[in-house]
């Protein structure tokens, strides 16, 4: 079945996007990415450690840009200005690569997004030619504004970053999907495979996660589970589920041809 995810005109066969943080080492990172089947992987942009051995193993060796689409993020940024500067550095670092994940946080306890700073950063980045996939709250009005600015994917939280609380407000996700035409990708909050499947069954275009995989006891096995959950959820969405009803007078087995009562 030809059912690809299309972001900014580029086609991806996997609807699972994964982060590269919090793994034990780069070997585990790569094994988890391979098991997840993900093609788009998020990376962070950080200062080099001055004075430290410049020949230490690095992410680019374990996760080559020739095999994965890098999605540099602005994790840890609390202002539009910091986020924009971070992504300009990312574009320079990655040879002009313009697909980015914008996230501007509002509060270090909850990591809840600051949508006012997010909107401001999105405007600047789109004007500078970035293709912006944007992490945001599950507010449908803000989501629509971000699409109108020119963001190429809207990525609402399902619950807070790193919480593993799952899909807390499916109705808001539905409101967002009803209003925007670019891909809606659940970003943050997924805890286990069923959460990912639920997001996909709701009709989301994809799911982005990091901690749900890296924080599992066996990250590589969980990556495999997420791979299947996203595919299963997508197929269930496309198949169209049966309607829910409190009870049914039509059993699945024939009502005729029953053996006689003794």
């Amino acid at each position: 079945m030809n059912d690809n995810l299309i972001i900014a005109g580029k086609t991806y066969s996997s609807r699972l996007l994964v982060g590269t943080g919090k793994y034990k080492d780069f070997t585990e990172t790569r094994a988890a990415l391979d098991a997840s089947g993900a093609q788009i992987v998020t990376v962070a942009i950080r200062r080099t450690n001055l004075g430290q051995n410049a020949n230490e193993p690095n992410l680019l060796d374990a996760v080559p840009m020739s095999k994965f689409t890098y999605l540099p993020n602005t994790a840890g940024c609390y202002t539009a200005d910091d986020a924009v500067r971070t992504l300009r550095l990312a574009r320079e670092l990655l040879d002009g690569h313009s697909l980015v994940k914008l996230e501007v946080l509002g509060d270090p306890q909850s990591l809840y997004p600051n949508v006012i700073e997010t909107l401001a950063a999105a405007k600047t980045l789109v004007a500078e030619g970035f293709q912006v996939m944007v992490y945001t709250s599950d507010d449908p009005i803000i989501a629509k504004q971000l699409e109108d600015i020119g963001c190429v994917a809207i990525m609402p939280l399902a619950s807070l970053i790193g919480s593993g609380m799952g899909i807390l407000n499916p109705w808001n996700l539905q409101l967002i999907m009803d209003r925007v035409s670019v891909p809606v990708i659940v970003d943050a909050g997924v805890g286990t495979a069923s959460d990912a499947a639920i997001a996909m069954e709701l009709g989301c275009a994809g799911v982005l996660m990091n901690t749900a995989i890296a924080g599992a006891k066996n990250p590589v096995l969980m990556a495999s589970a997420m791979n299947k959950a996203v595919q299963a959820g997508r197929e269930a969405f496309l198949a169209g589920r049966m309607p829910k009803k409190l009870y049914s007078a039509t059993p699945s087995s024939p009502t005729t041809g029953m053996i006689a009562k003794i």
């Binding site: 982060g19 943080g21 998020t42 990376v43 962070a44 950080r46 993020n73 994790a75």
Partner: peptide, 28 residues
């Protein structure tokens, strides 16, 4: 402001300059 890689040899640094040097690291 970004210093493009192609201009490294021609950009002269001045006293008091503030520089940020970054790499890609694992992140979500």
């Amino acid at each position: 402001a970004i210093v493009p890689r192609s201009t490294y040899a021609t950009v002269q640094l001045a006293d008091g300059d503030k520089l940020e040097v970054v790499v890609a690291v694992g992140g979500g």
